[in-house]
């Protein structure tokens, strides 16, 4: 325990934030909004996890080309998360399988979890935000 990093004498405790992403990227604004809130949260030095399930797994699919629909392709931003110390990305196994996807189809390294593991992880959070 003594090895544990001490929280600063001033300032609030670091909280565990989980962002649950369940929407495909361009049909609604949710995916982009989630990404923006994630980046804001990260700048406050919080413990941030991102979860992708249901259609949310489509947010991470490689090779998105949005020129034709006139919307900014924000998928490269997921690769930049690492630079903000956001390294905990989790994907629901069944959601991938149902959509014919595997980890190889995704543009960032993720940890694939089953529903049981995902549920346990969810329980350990202080704050859960759904998008």
């Amino acid at each position: 325990m003594s090895e544990q990093q001490a929280t600063p004498a001033v300032g609030p405790k670091v909280k565990k934030f989980m962002f649950v992403n369940r929407k495909a990227p361009y049909g609604t604004i949710y995916a982009l909004e989630s990404l923006e809130v994630v980046l804001i949260t990260a700048t406050f030095d919080q413990d941030v996890s991102l979860v992708f399930m249901d259609d949310g797994v489509y947010e991470l699919v490689k090779g998105q080309q949005t020129k034709g629909i006139g919307i900014k392709n924000f998928s490269p931003s997921y690769r930049a998360l690492d630079g903000y110390d956001v390294e905990k990305l989790y994907v629901d196994q069944d959601s991938l399988a149902q959509r014919g996807l595997t980890e190889k189809d995704l543009l960032v390294p993720v940890e694939v979890l089953d529903a049981q593991q995902m549920g346990q992880l969810m329980q350990q959070q202080d704050v859960i935000l759904s998008f």
């Binding site: 369940r22 399930m53 069944d94 529903a115 049981q116 995902m118 549920g119 346990q120 329980q123």
Partner: peptide, 14 residues
């Protein structure tokens, strides 16, 4: 599918 996904993830006692 929200309910189904929730039920899949929810842990006993939740």
């Amino acid at each position: 599918s929200t309910l189904d996904t929730c039920l899949r993830m929810a842990q006993a006692g939740n």
